[in-house]
Structures are given as structure tokens and as C-alpha cells.
């Protein structure tokens, strides 16, 4: 697939109310932390929805870079390059 120089970020249903219902957003390559900053610039308040006061991802948000769990990579420092796909996933659990 030809790349347009961007990283494609998939937004799950639960977060689309913060992105004007956009399900996929093209961002400039960077670390996961930088991508979240870009999202927050475009959609003010987005960062506060997925990160806690300590600046870490909420424990019930999973971030995948090309099908790999960022938690097992370098977390917020994980680099997403041109053509990479990033997905945010809320945890689905209960009892």
C-alpha cells in the first residue's frame, strides 16, 4: 500500500465523540506520546481522556502499533513511522 507520509491512527467508537466522529486520523510520524499530543492539539481535551494525572495511559487503554502492544514495546516512547498503523483500544472486561 502506498504511504502518504502519515501514521494512521484508528479511533475506537468510545473516543469518537472527542474526534468529531472521525474513525481514522492521519498524523505526522512520531512517538506514541507525540501522536497523543498531536491529537490533543487537534481535539483539545483528548489527552486528558486517555491519560491519567501522572501522564501515563489509563490502564484500560491499550495502544497497538502495527498489531504489537505498545506496553511491550517502549510504551509512550514507541516510535510510529510513516505508513505505520496505530490503534487505541479500550479494555473490554467485566464479571
Amino acid at each position: 500500500m502506498a504511504s502518504d507520509g502519515s501514521v494512521k491512527v484508528k479511533i475506537p467508537t468510545v473516543f469518537r465523540r472527542f474526534t468529531g466522529n472521525e474513525a481514522e486520523i492521519d498524523l505526522a510520524p512520531g512517538t506514541i506520546g507525540q501522536l497523543i499530543d498531536q491529537l490533543d492539539e487537534r481535539y483539545p481535551g483528548f489527552k486528558g481522556q486517555i491519560m491519567n494525572d501522572e501522564g501515563e495511559l489509563h490502564r484500560f487503554v491499550n495502544v497497538y502499533v502495527n498489531d504489537e502492544d505498545a506496553r511491550y514495546l517502549e510504551k509512550l516512547e514507541t516510535q510510529a513511522n510513516e505508513g505505520d498503523r496505530v490503534a487505541l483500544l479500550p479494555s473490554v472486561a467485566g464479571g
Partner: peptide
């Protein structure tokens, strides 16, 4: 208790798309 495996969840979300 139940919890989806996030990797499998990701695959399903991709399939939905």
C-alpha cells in the same frame, strides 16, 4: 470474570472496518 484478549479484539475491530 471475563476480559477480551486485546490482540484478538484488535483483529475483530479490523475485521469490522
Amino acid at each position: 470474570r471475563y476480559a477480551l484478549d486485546p490482540q484478538e479484539q484488535l483483529a475483530v475491530y479490523q475485521d469490522l472496518d
